[in-house]
Design a protein around this nucleic acid. Sequence first.
RNA 1: GGCGGCAUGGCCAAGUGGUAAGGCAAAGGACUGCAAAUCCUUCACUCAUCGGUUCAAAUCCGAUUGCCGCCUCCA
Length: 480
Amino acid sequence: MPLRVYNTLTGSKEEFVPINPGKVGMYVCGVTVYDHCHIGHARANVVFDMIYRHLRSKGLEVTYVRNYTDIDDKIINRANRDGVPYNEISERFIKEFDNDMARLMLQLPTFQPKATEHIPEIIALVQTLIDKGFAYQSGSDVFYRVDRFEGYLKLSKRNLEDMQAGARIDVDERKEHPMDFALWKGAKPGEPHWESPWGQGRPGWHIECSAMSTKFLGETLDIHGGGKDLIFPHHENEIAQSEAASGKPFVKYWLHNGFVNINSEKMSKSLGNFFTIKEILESYDAEVLRFFLLSAHYRSPIDFSDQNLKEAELGLERIYKALAGIDERLASGANTPADADNAEFVEKVAGFAGRFGDAMDDDFNTALALGHLFDLVRVINRELPTASTGLLEQAKAEVAKMAAVLGICDSVPAAFLQRMKDRKTSDMEMSAEEIEALIAERAEARKAKNFKRGDEIRDLLLEKNIVLLDSAQGTTWKVK
RNA sequence: GGCGGCAUGGCCAAGUGGUAAGGCAAAGGACUGCAAAUCCUUCACUCAUCGGUUCAAAUCCGAUUGCCGCCUCCA
């Protein structure tokens, strides 16, 4: 099945055909490094990591570029507030970003360029736009002449008149048109700056992506991605800059991920209702967060809540329990002949990769793909006691291969389950020693057939949210 | 005001013309001394509402209602 993707530019799902067969150039807008990353950044980056993985799993050679915007008004403001050089802020938050992404198990992009390391390319691009009449100098600033570019607003599907009608844009005397945007900003005294034909200054917000994407991927990219909120003005302006300069289409497929909502409201810095990745990871395992973010289609809004995270945790545990079950069964050495294997199980295992791949090929439908995975998990659990080890090994391998496309289930199952237990144990009212003592007492009571005392202990622990698990090997416990 | 998106069972969530995936929760059963886990069964004659197109619509078209987003920095 061919891959189909929803293209924001055309507003429809299209078959994905790379410009150069077998190769994909993908550019994703990274972050402006002036603060900790929030869960919205987590979603965008996990989504495009999943897309990156899926493209590669299809045998495509992907060049993935994700930039750092490391010079910007917000960085300068923060530096002024903290009384430190601007690059101390940017370098610090680049490290923080890298760390957050590593915890979320993201694969590294092929290139992670920084705006400040591409000033010559940016200046050259601005000069080209001036030379071609798409930009003009005004004082020490350079602006893009939006009404000169025919395709302006084709991505966000608006028109200039409507934009101005409802605009809350301050009239800027230096601009020819209120919608013109800055390509280069003259430096005020004390601000970081670079030499340019227009005096000392720094790049505007959008120009670095045009310059860096062209440098690493050429004038036309296969995929350009980012959050929906970047459609306007950021991506619109990138199109204006790049296409005016090159005279060629900038991007073949525009992909945008939906927002993370808090209580059905958009989470954003300006609203102040945001959670940083680090905050979330204090309460939830990184893999659970990743699983949660992939449990909805990437273009839909996803509602972040304690309940939804808990459900994601239960879901991921369910998958891991099945995998742990296979491990235990294989370790036990027991086997049955393969010809006795349940036909449905055989089919579920054999057809899994195909179903999973089809779901992913349909505009990266991770929710459907996970549905297929749960389908398989149920049959694994059912057939676990009697299936042949060969089939179980095959099931395990298939799950591992597909889960890797989502970037989940990378842990040893037993280790993951232990990790979840430890996390829950850490905020328990009772110590493990106390629990063990009670379990020992209960074992004595049960040996003496004193089930009344045994049940008392079970209930006592249950009140503390501790559930006892009896098995032939003895009694273990878990946090409810 | 302009533009765009969404409305599926108690909750989360797939499904874009062929007769409603999956997860969580819940109920019953198997298993267990009792539990837990797991398995089996049940759980939307119906997809915001009203019209229309079609042999056939959650899926297409129109209208209505509600929610959300963008138009200003934002993943």
